[in-house]
Write a protein that binds this DNA or RNA. Sequence first.
DNA 1: TTCATTCTTGAGCAGATTAGTCGAGATTTG
DNA 2: CAAATCTCGACTAATCTGCTCAAGAATGAA
Lengths: 149, 149
Amino acid sequence: MKVSSKGEYALRALLVLGQHDGQVLSISDIADKTLVTVRYLEQILLQLKKLGYVSSKRGAQGGYRLKLAPQEINIGEVIRRLEGPLSPMSCASVTAYEPCQLEAGCMLKPLWTLVRDTIAHVLEQTTLDDLLSGKLNVLDGGNLIVYKK
Amino acid sequence: MKVSSKGEYALRALLVLGQHDGQVLSISDIADKTLVTVRYLEQILLQLKKLGYVSSKRGAQGGYRLKLAPQEINIGEVIRRLEGPLSPMSCASVTAYEPCQLEAGCMLKPLWTLVRDTIAHVLEQTTLDDLLSGKLNVLDGGNLIVYKK
DNA sequence: TTCATTCTTGAGCAGATTAGTCGAGATTTG
DNA sequence: CAAATCTCGACTAATCTGCTCAAGAATGAA
């Protein structure tokens, strides 16, 4: 049930850019703050650019900046577009559904669907701004109700 | 965020065994009902045996049967022991925690922790018996509350 | 203009993981 | 004893992950 380092690094980069509102930061600046190699970040930022989350400026004093407001950057969407479906199994995927041969009598599908729904619910309700402002911390307090039998 | 086919197949096998309460089923019987190759199931069942979920009988008329009652088989535990930590990132893992270099100022850890907690909550509250008796279906009705901001 | 800076593009690659296959042996039943 | 069946360990092909690298294109400053 892992998130890849690419996803983690992309979010780190977006957070750093979000902390320097609008400013253009060079890849190596971002690399320093995220602890990711410059060479690898190049790739990731390019991808984030193609997805429309950041924009870039070439040449001296160039670099990257956030293209969208932090409130507009949905974490679930970032992860899905970078790493593929949130669902643990494709039979329960909303964006990449594929039937399996069992299907009809499958007793696991409700479970995978539930897992997908909870993951998607958490990630899709969270924006970059939520992370920047630490809004998630309240959850440590125990406001976690997942389901009733 | 995938579950591997090994995990899926192991649960399928446990479900089939659970549906034939106590009966000894041969690997090929189970293979027929789960749509998994005999050779691959061999490996998986052997692992489930070492983990104490099933027991086996060799020789003619031999096979596998459930060693624990379906109520005693915790799905989260099965997946964790078969595939490793439920957490999407090791910094948020309860069973395999590893610090990352950011740690202190990391704005992602609360997110990964929340994701881990919701996944763990769903999977660890579910038993094989729940799956066999379809208790998860009520969740389709919308009893899904993940968190309050 | 020229040069240093910085992004851009595409290729390449080593190691790990996944999803199996396979052969030979050990055990049990009939 | 023979057939059925689990057991064990090795092996493999394909894919994915997590990067590195080289060469080029654009921009700004001197």
